[in-house]
């Protein structure tokens, strides 16, 4: 079985973010980067499938500048077999363009199952995996919390509010991975050493047309300090008046 996992390198969400001078992105100085959490679960699931089968191959693929190789090598050290960097140095916010580049690489690869995270934890667009399936003409099950691949069929479970859905579709297919399915393992030291010898190909990214650009990024305005209108029941009429006329919430 051939599996592909699409991986995005993202900043650690615990970091302190500043908007870059360009106004269209974040200042990367001082931030730590790692695999997006959901992509880590996807890589773990794919690796577990090949471990269970005792056969198969997991290819991890990431679009971005050369630093994404570090993230790809982490996936290799977890147990993925080979990696592909789709080299593109400028940041891309258009999920369709990213999906186009991924589809160009994946379409003739003979993959049985393509796994993506449910979303990137930084931009949270939830679009790339769905776009990718559409471009490849494959069925997609999104945001799955359980997965079973058997006899050419993928069976998956999706969590709903107070209920769940069980869905199946034939392979080849695309799935996007929610949390709860598996925790990404931390690579063993031997895995880290072995990753250095695994193949990592660098190819140009064929993004296709960029359909939209990120115009501007801004922090929310600082909240003004509160004010005490008065005390006790005598203050209520004034409070109601302000809520109606100033805050306009009544």
């Amino acid at each position: 079985m051939k599996l592909a996992v699409c991986i995005k390198r993202v900043p650690d969400m615990e970091g302190r973010f500043k908007i870059a001078a360009s106004g269209t992105g974040i200042d990367e100085a001082g931030l730590k980067y790692d695999m997006s959490d959901f992509d880590g679960y996807a890589a773990e699931v794919a690796i577990q499938i090949t471990e269970k089968l005792g056969a198969g191959e997991v290819t991890v693929i990431s679009l971005g500048p050369d630093v994404v190789q570090e993230t790809l090598r982490k996936a290799l050290s977890m147990g993925a077999h080979r990696a592909v960097q789709l080299k593109h140095d400028a940041p891309v916010s258009d999920g369709l363009a990213v999906a186009t580049a991924l589809a160009a690489e994946l379409k003739d690869g003979g993959y049985d199952l393509i796994l993506c995270g449910r979303m990137a934890v930084d931009t949270q667009n939830r679009s790339t995996g769905i776009f990718l399936a559409e471009l490849l003409g494959l069925p997609v099950i999104s945001a799955i919390s359980q997965l079973n691949v058997e006899g050419g069929v993928v069976k998956a479970r999706r969590e709903l509010e107070g209920a769940y859905e069980l869905i199946e579709c034939p392979l080849p297919a695309v799935v996007t991975i929610d949390e709860g399915i598996a925790r990404a393992r931390y690579p063993s030291l031997k895995g880290i050493m072995a990753a250095k010898k695994k193949p990592l190909e660098v190819k140009p990214a064929h993004l296709g047309a960029i359909t939209y650009q990120l115009e501007k990024m801004e922090l929310p305005a600082e909240r003004a300090a509160g004010r005490i209108v008065g005390e006790g029941k005598d203050a209520v009429p004034e409070l109601v008046r302000l809520l109606k006329e100033e805050a306009k919430v009544l």
Binding site: E14, R16, G30, D34, M193
Partner: peptide, 26 residues
Amino acid sequence: RTGDLYNIDAALTEEERAIRDSVRAF
């Protein structure tokens, strides 16, 4: 802490950082 005020990470190789992060996760 996610910060590294003195950027000591830059004095480590990628492999050294990967090893450190793996043990840290354990």
